[in-house]
Computed example of a mutant assay.
Amino acid sequence: MSSTARLMDGSALARRIVGQAAERAADLTRQTGRAPCLATVLVGEDPASVTYVRMKRARCEKAGIRSRHVELPAATTTAELVGTIAALSQDPDVHGILLQHPVGPHIDERAAFEAIAPEKDVDGVTFHSFAAMSFGLDGFASCTPGGILRLLDHYEVDLTGKHAVVVGRSAILGKPVGMLLLGRNATVTYCHSRTTDLASITREADVLIAAVGRPRFLHGEHIKPGAVVIDAGYNPGNVGDVDFESASARASLLTPVPGGVGPMTIAVLLTQTVDAAARQLGVA
């Protein structure tokens, strides 16, 4: 048993990836005279969402990616939101679209996501992107799952034949990360908050992905000694879905919160925005 887990430094890796994206963005701008552009759409004034969007726009600016921000009132209807996104999808000056979620219970979020043109779905939230990712075809991965795979690669975690357990089943995290792991020849088990005798399953995991959205939901007794543990949760008070202290006594590799998965999500978003721009401008 590992007495102290080695921490997976997502912040350092993300800085490297963003630096590479910035170089590519600069090259693209020189070649075409047009900088990559990410449009962010925010409905309402949820404080956390406002902060996330501001942070993403700041990262874009540092990476040489233009950002266009669209703020809509909380009372915006599904039809109005779909119309706004459809217009951005048709705008040749916009290369990627990010709809900040949640958007409010009165809005059909799936309809809004599906208004994003597949070639501009740099957040990987549409049916098209999920299907392409699941079948190993050309498309954009959901950003957090994509970031998790990059972290695993960086720390040379061989997924072939390993048992990966995903705790969580959301459309933008739990489900897609399982498909990416399956594509790397892992054997994947999905669990969630209603799974019976959860600990008996998670203790069999060589790689454990916590994406359930509950603070400190998984503890040391849920973890197989020597397992790789990815905490993809972020809860109030900078707390993840894993109890860090007890997990670090059993895991071999562990992502901290903050500084693990979070920075990787933004790094993949910026990378995929540059990818999208290059394809649309005919440079890819």
Rank of each mutant, 00 (worst) to 15 (best):
H192L: 01
V166D: 06
L173H: 12
R184L: 00
L151D: 00
K162H: 03
L180E: 14
Y155L: 01
E156I: 00
S170C: 01
R184A: 01
G183L: 07
G146M: 04
G161M: 04
T160F: 05
L152V: 06
Y155N: 01
K162R: 14
A186F: 03
G174C: 06
V166E: 09
D158G: 01
T189N: 12
Y190P: 03
V177P: 11
K162W: 07
L181A: 06
A164C: 05
L180I: 12
V177R: 09
Y155S: 03
I148M: 11
A164Y: 04
T187V: 10
P176Y: 11
V167S: 13
V177L: 07
R169S: 05
D158A: 06
I148G: 15
Y155I: 00
T160N: 14
D153N: 10
P176M: 10
G183D: 15
A164M: 06
L159C: 00
I172D: 13
T189I: 04
A164Q: 14
Y155M: 02
M179F: 14
G183F: 08
V177N: 01
L159Q: 07
L152Q: 04
N185Y: 03
C191Q: 09
H163C: 07
V177W: 06
L182A: 10
G178N: 10
K175I: 09
H163P: 13
R169L: 02
G147P: 05
K162N: 12
H163D: 14
S193L: 01
R150D: 10
T189M: 02
K162I: 01
G168S: 04
